[in-house]
Amino acid sequence: MNLWRDIKGTFQPFWITLRYLFKRPVTISYPEQKRTLPPRYRARMILTRDPDGEERCVACHLCSAACPVDCISMQAAERADGRRHAAWFRINFARCIYCGLCAEACPTLAIQMSSEYELGNRDLLKLVWEKEDLLVDHGGKDPDYHFYRHTGIGVVAPRGGNNDELPPVDIKTNLP
């Protein structure tokens, strides 16, 4: 038992707290003072567009499955050209915890996190955002990625027309 150490350990903190009492607080008084965010700060999500300007979201439900608070809901639908898209896409920011798991789950890079964090509101319904509110007109951090150019099911290109695909096979040929 080191009595001296214990006594010192008990009383030294008093000196530290007393010293701190006279130091300048480090608090940033938020609404008046705003801190500069890191450029890749991730706050609320956005829905980006592919290089052709079309919605990237294919309503695959992976974000809503990944969401730990179940704040995303959507309904998929099919367009005339076979493109799968979201008939509606809704996120309840009143429930959202800004964890970014949706962006991580998104296979088409549609969901990305923007740095907009000031969403406070007294009307809960105003915190329920629809697809139209979330859509932006750019491709976010990876503007060249085009999901349908890699899927190989022929939505934006004819079947077998993407770069990494062979033309459709001729099933009636006998050649080896």
Binding site: R159, G160, D164, E165, L166, P167, P168, V169, I171
Partner: peptide, 8 residues
Amino acid sequence: GKKRTYQN
């Protein structure tokens, strides 16, 4: 290599 495709 490239992927094989079919017509549906």
